[in-house]
Design a protein around this nucleic acid. Structure first.
Length: 877
DNA sequence: TTAATCACGC
DNA sequence: GACGTACGTGATTAAC
């Protein structure tokens, strides 16, 4: 078989890829677009060309032999953007993983290396193919050498052999040099002959053949101007010819036989693809290697415990309590695995739950436990009356703190990212969706053991990572204790007055039926009001109402659109009512009734501690953080939330303006700080400053605008967002924001500063070092960049507020305990805490709740807490 | 099963 | 000037 050599101009292809693709980056902020483009091109070449030999040539250093004769060579060229140069090490790593030879040579360019090696190869009668983004390389074309030049993007190429070259330019390969010499090359700062472009160069060469011949025959050339130019630039043209001539005899130290391709290192490739988050390539390229990894290379011995003995338990122990249901409340425990210095052990649930040794060990705070999702283990064991204490490491929380944007916090993913590949994904073991099932015990036990083993082997490394980020304190002093507190709140649950909810349901349902009928009558046809599609057709086609906004799939029928049409047709208000009631019924009445525990009449939500990008909690199954409050009809739902015992009350305490206070502190804005220290109404104060009015001159409307701007600052909305919420134009909204920032120079300085910081570090932090990476902050895409900038401004504010209430919760739990109170903390809703309280403890709570919450963290402004209580959540207002 | 739309809270 | 606009959870419909 004939040998086939592929030669790639590495720099040129990398440049191409960089400029052809959007500036991609990993969620840690490593730029990857050039590597990605390079990789796709490489894969395509390997597949389509099937070379036996291959080399990627790179330019070496700044100076080349060409600079000796012509110092301005490549002068005036823009410096390689750092976003690109950062990627070269990854490209080299990539090539090494593929075992593709790469080469650079001091004083020479990639072109010359390619020129030399292609010559050697054709002398041996090999077939050679060259890839570059640069047409200069066309001079290498011969019987044996074809050259592919990127056309558009990276994988789209024009391929030239002698015929194709002749067809395109009517030139031989050597004449390409002459053409370049006449034309010059702006990007390499090669002068050529001024006024001669491609057209003229081709005309001259077709007539005379070479630069030298052209210069010899100047008198035969038509056009006075052209003659003059050639005459004047004679030397320059000759020098240019020298510069563009690719050397075919450079002192390369490798021979073409060294370029033979060999097996590539699948493990390295897949590791690298993972690091660079090339998910599509990972799947396309190495699904078998992924399988292999899931098949796990290492044997893992473990003991299926028949009889539990105290010697099995030493500190620390990695513990896996497997609850296969997503919702761990009252769900069966599948099995228990643990790994420590004594060995690897699997316990059946029954054995564990009936063993005094196990229970004693579990509740001993001195026995350290390492877990993944501690709260899940604590709560599910709790439901079986087993206390779990001494959990001081949670891989889930650690991974979340290291990077909340990580798409998966599965043990296998976290472990794989750290080079530990001996654990399978839960999804692989259990299946997903309808196919989800519990495997045979041997498969199950091994999986648990492997997870525990991963935990045991990784916890020190991950703790170290937290320390490097100065996040260890946040982890061990705040989030770990918090997960215990949250576990207690979840298990405690909130009692629901089921009768009341059912009665409300009946009422709402009747109203809904009535409204539905009226809507159908007004429309003249029965249709599904809940279907945006059908509703759109009725409103905008049948009833011919003006179309305000469209969505991807049709007419928009959202509330803000309908409100604009409210006085156009009497059907509209009814639809809005219908929507509101429908939401109430399905989500808050039926939805809540569905999740009430029939025996206890309690609802047990789950607080997700590792999901939001800002550090807030979220709540699911059900979401108790979005129970209606704004509209009276919805607010009544809160009447169904009651204390679990007679003579108890619901006690609610909320931070007043916590985000704006945090802003005042972080931005060190004197005016804002003063306003809070003086206890002013912050929206009125904002209005005074923004509108330059006195306190008594501030109208309700001015205050409303100021409030919206404050809201925007806190949530990081755009001028567009503000314009929507105030019903003004975007320009007006932008002017508003502008005036706000002029009024609060400290805030302005903070906003500018934090964006710079984010650009520099790639992330922003809260006061307690919670971190959020913003890879898109340097994006060339306006939207992505703007979004990242708003996030940079907003996350430290919202995240610090989240830090503060979390601190308060941990402290509050301690305080309730130390004061020996019966009071139970039930819920957290971002800036408020809900308790159930025996009436006799209300007076104490009135004192300690504000005290604890207000002193959670000391800022340059006071924190203020309002509270109230009543017989239901509704009445705690 | 998944995507799109809508609505609720902070 | 771009273009789609805080974060989450959940219900419903309509496509596959």
């Amino acid at each position: 078989m004939k040998n086939k050599l592929v030669l790639i101009d590495g720099n040129s292809i990398a440049y191409r890829a960089f400029f052809a693709l959007p500036l991609l980056s990993t969620n840690k902020g490593i730029y990857t677009n050039a590597v990605y483009g390079f990789t796709t091109m490489l894969l395509k070449v390997l597949e389509e060309e099937k070379p036996t030999h291959m080399l990627v040539a790179f330019d070496a250093g700044k100076t080349t032999f060409r600079h000796k004769n012509y110092q301005e060579y490549k002068g005036g060229r823009q410096k390689t953007p750092s976003e690109l140069s950062e990627q070269f090490p990854f490209i080299r790593e990539l090539l090494d993983a593929f075992n593709i030879p790469r080469y650079e040579l001091d004083q020479y360019e990639a072109d010359d290396i390619i020129g030399t090696l292609s010559k050697k190869a054709e002398e041996e009668d090999w077939e050679v193919k060259v890839f570059s983004g640069d047409k200069d390389l066309l001079q290498l074309v011969s019987d044996h050498v074809t050259v592919a030049v990127t056309k558009k993007g990276i994988t789209d190429v024009d391929t030239y052999n002698i015929e194709a070259l002749h067809e395109k330019y009517g030139l031989s390969p050597d004449q390409i040099i002459d053409m370049k010499a006449l034309m010059g090359d702006k990007s390499d700062n090669i002068p050529g002959v001024p006024g001669v472009g491609e057209k003229t160069a081709l005309k001259l060469l077709h007539e005379f053949g070479t630069v030298d011949k052209v210069l010899e025959s100047i008198d035969q050339i038509s056009g006075k101007k052209m003659k003059e130019r050639l005459e004047e630039n004679r030397d320059q043209a000759l020098m240019s010819k020298e510069l563009v001539t690719i050397l075919r005899e450079t002192p390369v130290e490798i021979s073409i036989s060294d370029l033979q391709l060999s097996e590539y290192n699948k493990q390295k490739i897949s590791d690298l693809f993972k690091e660079l988050e090339f998910k599509s390539l990972l799947g396309k390229f190495s699904d078998d290697s992924l399988e292999e990894q899931e098949m796990l290379d290492e044997e893992m011995n473990y003991e299926i415990v028949e009889e539990i003995t105290p010697e099995m338990f030493v500190s620390p122990t990695a513990l896996v309590v497997e609850v296969n249901d997503e919702n761990y409340h009252n769900a069966p425990i599948q099995g228990i695995g643990f790994v420590n210095e004594k060995g690897r052990f699997y316990l059946s649930t029954e054995k564990a739950l009936t063993s005094d040794y196990f229970k004693q060990w579990a509740k001993d705070p001195g026995q350290e436990k390492l877990t993944f999702d501690a709260k899940r283990a604590i709560v599910s064991l709790g439901w079986h009356e087993v206390d779990l204490e001494g959990v001081n490491f949670d891989l889930l929380i650690a991974s979340y703190l290291l990077n909340p944007a990580e798409s998966s916090h599965d043990v296998a993913d976290i472990a794989n990212r750290r080079g530990y590949a001996n654990v399978q994904h839960d999804e692989v073991v259990y299946g997903k969706g309808a196919k989800r099932k519990i495997p045979e015990e041997d498969v199950l036990s091994e999986h648990l053991i492997r997870k525990a083993d991963a935990l045991f082997r990784l916890y020190e490394q991950v703790s170290e990572e937290l320390k490097e980020n100065s996040q260890y304190e946040l982890f061990s002093e705040l989030e770990m204790p918090l997960s215990v507190v949250l576990g207690k709140m979840e298990r405690q649950g909130v009692e629901v007055d089921v009768n009341r909810l059912e009665n409300m349901g009946k009422e709402v349902d009747e109203k809904l039926q009535r409204l539905g009928k009226e809507i159908h009558e007004l429309a003249g046809v029965e249709f599904n009001v809940n279907s945006p599609k059908q509703l759109g057709e009725i409103l905008f086609e049948k009833l011919q109402l003006p179309v305000v906004k469209k969505t991807k799939t049709g007419y928009s029928t959202s509330a803000d659109v309908l409100e604009k049409l409210a006085d156009k047709h009497e059907i509209i208000p009814k639809i809005l009512d219908y929507r509101q009631l429908g939401k109430l019924y399905s989500t808050y009445i039926e939805g809540l009734l569905k999740v009430v525990n029939k025996e206890s009449n309690k609802i047990h939500t789950r607080f997700n501690q590792a999901i939001t990008q800002t550090g807030r909690l979220s709540s699911t199954d059900p979401n108790l953080q979005n129970i209606p409050i704004r509209l009276e009809e919805g607010r009544k739902i809160r009447q169904a939330f009651i204390p679990a015992q007679d003579d108890w009350v619901i006690f609610a305490a909320d931070y007043s303006q916590i985000e704006l206070r945090v802003l005042a502190h972080i931005a060190k804005d004197e005016k804002l700080i003063d306003a809070f220290n003086e206890g002013m109404d912050i929206h009125t104060k904002t209005a005074m400053d923004v509108f330059g009015a006195k306190e008594e001159e501030v109208t309700a409307d001015m205050r409303r605008h100021a409030k919206a701007v404050n809201f925007g600052i806190v949530y990081g909305i755009s001028d567009y967002g503000l314009s929507q919420s105030l019903g003004i134009t975007r320009k007006e909204a932008a002017a508003f924001i502008e005036r706000y920032l002029e009024s609060f120079p400290g805030v302005k300085a903070y906003m500018d500063d934090i964006i710079q910081q984010a650009k520099r570090d790639g992330f922003v932090t809260t006061l307690l070092n919670r971190r959020r990476y913003l890879p898109e902050i340097n994006s060339r895409n306006f939207n992505l960049r703007s979004f990242a900038e708003r996030t940079a401004m907003n996350t430290p504010i919202q995240g610090t507020a989240a830090d503060i209430i979390k601190l308060a919760m941990v402290e509050m739990a301690k305080r309730l305990e130390s004061e020996g109170l019966e009071t139970k903390m039930l819920l957290q809703v971002h800036d408020e805490l809900i308790f159930e309280v025996p009436k006799c403890e209300v007076d104490v709570l009135k004192k300690i709740v504000p005290e604890v919450m207000e002193s959670a963290l000391s800022l340059d402004v006071p924190l203020r807490v309002d509270y109230s209580y009543g017989s239901t959540w509704y009445d705690a207002k």
